[in-house]
Design a protein around this nucleic acid. Structure first.
Lengths: 230, 230
DNA sequence: AGGATGCTTCGGTGCAGACCGAACTGTCTT
DNA sequence: AAGACAGTTCGGTCTGCACCGAAGCATCCT
């Protein structure tokens, strides 16, 4: 265990991994930039991370794209961030991330929770002890939003989990359906990435769309930030 | 983030933290023993962990008892173990832990999942998007087992989460109710700790009790161990 | 072909931090 | 009061490893 933690425990590697929680695949050079180190050193770090099964590589010509190897890795990183954030005074950046962010491949933060809540409240989604399921009405509903649950790739089986993380201690939708919803939100330009981070900004189109579709009102910005346990 | 991970990333500190995932409070000397280092060095490590908010101390006379500071810390550690275990060949020890173990203060592993499943199947527990709730029948049922949900300390609100960990990728019951169930299982000697680890052994009394109470049959020992994603 | 670009390998430097021995504080026992 | 025991503080050693410069290997462009 300590071997894995030690890999995350280096400043430079930590920066790289944080950048990759956005779910994007980045090249070695881009990662060198975010970690503020030379390409040589970056290369060493990356090969260690790949060897440990934390990252996977995808070579495209002379570029090598690195991404998190699995949802388990993303989950681990969020877990570490949770502990790191507790007891710390939330920065502006923290608050931005708490509002809406990408967590590997799905939406998290207040936005992610609000969407999951809305789906459940309207009976579009049922959550049981082992994930959940999209209902018939949910299938129709999502189809109207532009997500074809019945179609090929997606199974109705939903995977939900509580990003028991530093901003919300509630469930949001992960897995294939969560990823599809996130993709669709990008497609419709409801959200867009802030800088190169995993924080998201809800566009004005998005605010209208979210209200009309899910009944989600703008989250007041001055809302108190909840941190840590109980 | 990397600061927290670096703290876990040391071999000696990792051993100590692993020992503490059992939920027990251990003294500095005991931790020195499990980490195989001298008391001086242990002291340094422990003060770092306490400063970082990973551990809390409880001084009793000349003894100082250390324990994990929060469920978030426990959760983080399980997340790291998940990644560490994936891709590794499961050892006998892994299999023992996968069967039944203590996760901070509640039951995890196959046993933890089986109990949560049984409660849901019999309508004693409902899980929603934000944790769950013990039903009326559940309250009666648990009272018969010796757990007073209606009583003072416990609220009906259940906190469940998927220990998306290396042994089971399904929900089990955590929080106050999960802890109460675990306590009661110890009280009735249904389970007992193995060695000084967080692994649990189901006693013969326990096997009978679990079958009679929850309808849980003995899990076949030769069952294949599931590791990793998907 | 020649040069630019992305990335890796190698060799050497320097620093952080894990570790222990020795000495000290505080608590409990007899 | 003396000794045992739990834990800490201090000083010093030594190793692991993050880092970079230089050089090498692919791939792409023109």
């Amino acid at each position: 265990m300590s071997e894995i933690a030690a890999l995350v425990g280096d400043r430079a590697r930590g920066e790289m991994l944080s950048a990759l929680v956005s779910g994007r695949a980045l090249t070695a050079k881009e990662l060198a930039y975010v970690a503020k180190i030379t390409p040589q050193t970056t290369s060493e770090h990356l090969s260690k991370l790949v060897d440990a099964g934390i990252l996977t590589v995808n070579t495209r010509g002379r570029f090598r794209y690195f991404r998190l190897a699995s949802a388990a890795v993303s989950h681990m990183l969020e877990g570490i961030m949770t502990v790191a954030a507790s007891g710390r005074v939330p920065t502006f950046r923290d608050r931005t991330l708490a509002r809406a962010r990408i967590c590997y491949d799905h939406l998290a933060g207040e936005l992610g929770v609000a969407i999951a809540d809305a789906l459940i409240r309207h009976g579009h989604l049922i959550l049981g002890s082992d994930g959940g399921e999209v209902t018939d009405s949910g299938e129709t509903f999502l189809a109207n939003v532009g997500i074809d649950v019945a179609g090929s790739r997606l199974r109705r089986r939903a995977f939900c989990r509580p990003c028991l993380d530093w901003s919300e201690r509630r469930y949001h939708l992960a897995g294939a359906i969560g990823a599809a919803i996130a993709d669709r939100c990008f497609e419709m330009k409801w959200v867009k990435r802030i800088e190169e981070s995993r924080a998201l900004q809800i566009t004005s189109v998005g605010e209208k769309g979210l209200l009309a579709t899910f009944g989600i009102k703008r989250v007041p910005a001055e809302q108190e930030h909840v941190i840590g346990e109980k």
